[in-house]
Amino acid sequence: MINSFPKLLGATVVTLKLLSASLIFGLFVGLFFAILRLNKNIFINKFAYGYSYVFRGTPLLVQIFIIYFGLGQIEYFRTTFLWVIFKEPYWCAVIAFTLNTGAYTSEILRSAFQTIKLGIIEAGRSLGISNKIIFYKIQIPIAIRQSLPAYGNEIILMMKGTSLASTVTLMDLTGVAKHIISTTFKPIEVFIVAGGIYLFMTFIIHNIIKFLEKKYSFNS
């Protein structure tokens, strides 16, 4: 149990890297699609809805497999410069996670945008503030604050989701845990250590979000 700890801790770094990369990219993807969802053009709107529907309605495992095993099958694709990225399992995993978390984030942000009271926007307009500035300086900050609790859950879900990287040969925390279990046949001990590390990360994320919520709440 003690011997496996350093190995698992090393693998935690991989998990954290995957998590932070996909969250950062995913936030941009999510914001982009949330804005598309609010567009009045029905085609743009439907396209954004279709994206989030497909990525939320299928398992993350399928998404990773399509990107990692599926895309490499297209001959033409392998000749493009994109192949440099898509042949690496690490980047395939990051892209799958990004698209997945982007879909959920877009839903969270969309509902946050939609719950902003019209009065706030009208107040901005009557003060003569341009629509663009209202969007960037008023709507986005309010939406971010409103979506914090839901986004915190999404971060934790994504952290658990990174465990699927182990299915495409990446040695993240779950991948290493599985390797140790299958060589030592001590499933319970390894589960306690690896699970403990995951729980610790959940705990940290939970508290950071709680702190941010307090910081950005109306009454502070």
Partner: peptide
């Protein structure tokens, strides 16, 4: 708080 895959393993 623990990944599903780990529970399955």
């Amino acid at each position: 708080g623990v990944p599903e895959l780990l529970v399955i393993y």
